[in-house]
């Protein structure tokens, strides 16, 4: 049981790091603000989500070992994820709107769309 929880937790932490890495690469490599926002948004939901899942599993392990105060840690982690679910899309939306209001035209592939 312990081993399984630990392994699961590490797998999800590594998955979170992977998504973070992909998101970062996207921010660096993609051509304009909107596509970059797409990558950054994935970092927030998938990357941070998996990282928090890994931490939750570690906390569950602690609780199974009789650490009663770790319930608070679990509660806080869940709260953090809930707030991330709210703030991340809203921030991305605000940034995209600001870009549009600032007159940044969305990037299109050369020879695609505009003739």
């Amino acid at each position: 049981m312990d081993m399984a929880l630990d392994a699961l937790s590490w797998i999800s932490i590594v998955a979170g790091l992977f998504f973070m890495l992909v998101g970062t690469l996207g921010v660096l490599r993609l051509p304009d603000i909107y596509t970059r926002l797409h990558a950054a948004g994935m970092t927030d939901t998938m990357g941070a989500g998996f990282l928090i899942l890994g931490m939750v599993l570690q906390t569950v392990q602690g609780i199974l070992h009789g650490e009663s105060t770790w319930w608070f840690v679990l509660f806080r982690l869940v709260l953090i994820y809930v707030f991330l679910l709210f703030t991340s899309p809203i921030a991305s939306h605000a940034l995209a709107r600001a870009g549009l209001a600032g007159g940044v035209a969305p990037w299109t592939a050369p020879g695609d769309g505009d003739e």
Binding site: D32, I33, R97, A98, G99, A101, G102, V104
Partner: peptide
């Protein structure tokens, strides 16, 4: 409202 947004996307 639009103050900071008025750059060229900061890019």
């Amino acid at each position: 409202k639009d103050g900071p947004a008025r750059t060229e996307g900061g890019a």
